[in-house]
Every structure is written in C-alpha cells, then in structure tokens.
C-alpha cells in the first residue's frame, strides 16, 4: 500500500514536472527577478555596480515626459484600434453570414492577413504608406489623402491603426461568425413578422445575443493592441520623432538602447499592472452585459 502511494506520487510528478519546470524557469522566475531589478540602478554591464534605489525608479516614471507621451499614444492607438477592428470584423462577419454565394471564399480572403507575422505586415505596409502613397498622390493630385503617412506624427499613428485593423479584423470576424451562427433563426423571423426593421433586429436582438463573442473580441483586441510591438517596430520604428513610440517599444528602448536596466524594468512592471487592470476590468464589465437565452 505504501509503495503504491509512493508510486502514485512519482507518476504525478512525471506528468506535471516537465511543464511546471519549463514554466517556472521561463515565466515565474524572470517575473520575480524582474521585480528585484526594478528597485536598482544599473546599466546592464556586469562589471558596473548595481545600486539599490528603492522606489526611486517608480517615482521617476511619473515625471518621465517621454513615457507619459508614449502612454498617451498607446491609449489613443488602442481606443481607435479596438473600435475599428471590432466594427470592421463584425461588419465582415455579417456580410459573410448573409448566405450569399462566394462567402466562403471571401472569408478565406478576409482571414488571410492574420496568419502573417506583425513584422512582415509592418514592412509591407511601410512601403505602401510611404512610397506608394506618395507616388499615388503625385500622379493623381489627391495629396490630401495620398502623401507619406509615416512622416506625419498623427497619420503615422493612424497607420498603425490601419495595419492592425487589417491584420486582426479577420480574426475577430471568425469569432463573430460563431456568435452570429448561434443566434436562432426563428427569433429573427419572429421579429421580422412583428415588423422590426433590419437595424432594430440587429441592435435589439442579434447584438445582445452575441455579447459573449463581443466580450471575447474586445478582450482579445484590447490586450493585443496594448502590447503591440512588432508592427510598431517594422512600420514606424517609433518615429517620426518618437510620435508613435508605444508602451512596449518605450520599455525595450529604455532597457536595451539606453541601457537603463533598472528603470526600464520598473516600467515593465508598471506595464504588467496596466495590462492586468485593463483586461480584468474589461472582462468584468462585459460579462455583466451578456444576455442568456
């Protein structure tokens, strides 16, 4: 009996340990060590001294104009992108589920950009939004729209919104499609017979019923936009003049470009708290609005 129980324990460890060890070494330990680093002043060079500065790094963040600017840009970008991605994705889902011929093909095309990595997408769009747009503007004379977007601080931020919408609209479309397919047809038919127009049907029946899909999509887009890095790096590189340096890039630059390891890590810890707060609040808020049939 005793050996049996010992055996059970051993089996338990064999099953759980490989996953747990990898996870512990790659996620938990760096996280804990990272908290430690956020209290020191260090330039990343092993031979140079590391000095304990307590909460100074955290205090400094609140007066760091560049970080505050990047926070603001991230906020504007995230708000715009979450709206455009979800509106586009839902519109595409409605279009694709409207029982038209060719909807499978259209769905395939809309989803395509999602499989391509952010870095590569960023590079493709960099060419389009700079050289291609400028060239179109020169030939057509519509220079109000077609100019090098990446040289203008505001339009460079819009560029990021455009690219991430292009990438993620197809993804949220897929989730909205499953949501829409779960809306019972007879409910829509009944509303039609009662004389509800297309808009009323959508906003009064379909939309409340797909609220679970909305939760999932907003949660997903919110945390992804907030953490965006690859597209930012490839498309704008933070420019012009740091106007599009978003959170993740600001942290990366602080640590690896300016070699302020302690201070940069303090920012990274704040970043973690922001991501956690934003996503948890969002889930709590939208969960309440879901309608159960």
């Amino acid at each position: 009996m005793v050996t049996n129980r010992k055996n059970e324990r051993l089996i338990y460890l064999v099953f759980t340990m490989p996953a747990t060890i990898a996870f512990f070494l790659v996620v938990i330990m760096p996280f804990a060590i990272g908290i430690g680093y956020s209290f020191v002043d260090w330039d990343g060079i092993v031979l140079n001294p590391m000095t304990f500065v307590g909460l100074d790094n955290y205090k400094r963040i609140f007066t760091d104009e560049r970080f505050i600017a990047s926070a603001l840009h991230t906020l504007i970008f995230t708000l715009m992108a979450v709206v455009t991605i979800n509106v586009t994705g839902l519109a595409l889902a409605l279009l694709v589920t409207s029982k038209l011929k060719g909807s499978n093909m259209a769905r395939t095309m809309f989803f395509m950009p999602n499989l391509i990595g952010g870095l590569i997408l960023g590079y493709i769009w960099k060419f389009i939004l700079s050289d291609t747009f400028r060239s179109i503007g020169e030939t057509t004379g519509w220079t109000g729209v077609f100019f090098n977007w990446l040289l203008d601080p505001l339009f460079a931020l819009f560029s990021l919104v455009v690219v991430i919408t292009w990438q993620m609209a197809g993804y949220v479309m897929i989730i909205y499609i499953t949501g829409l397919q779960s809306v019972p047809d007879d409910l829509i038919e009944a509303a039609k017979i009662d004389g509800a127009g297309a808009f009323t049907r959508f906003f009064r029946i379909t939309f409340p019923l797909i609220m679970p899909a909305v939760t999932v999509c907003i949660f997903y887009t919110l945390s992804n936009c907030f953490k965006i890095y690859d597209i930012n790096l490839a498309l704008t590189g933070g420019g012009p003049a740091n106007a599009t340096e978003l959170f993740a890039m600001n942290i990366y630059n602080e640590i690896f470009s300016y070699n302020r390891y302690g201070y940069g890590q303090a920012k990274a810890i704040i970043f973690f708290f922001l991501v956690a707060i934003v996503t948890l609040t969002q889930v709590a808020l939208t969960k309440r609005k879901e309608v159960q049939l």
């Binding site: 790659v26 330990m29 760096p30 890095y229 390891y261 990274a268 973690f272 956690a276």
Partner: peptide
C-alpha cells in the same frame, strides 16, 4: 496576463 516585455530583460540575464 504577464506581457513578454515584463519578462524579457530578466530572461536575458538568466
């Protein structure tokens, strides 16, 4: 919930 950027520097040190 932990973003990669929070782990990246300590990971490189490790």
């Amino acid at each position: 919930l932990i973003p990669f950027h929070t782990l990246m520097m300590p990971l490189v040190q490790m």
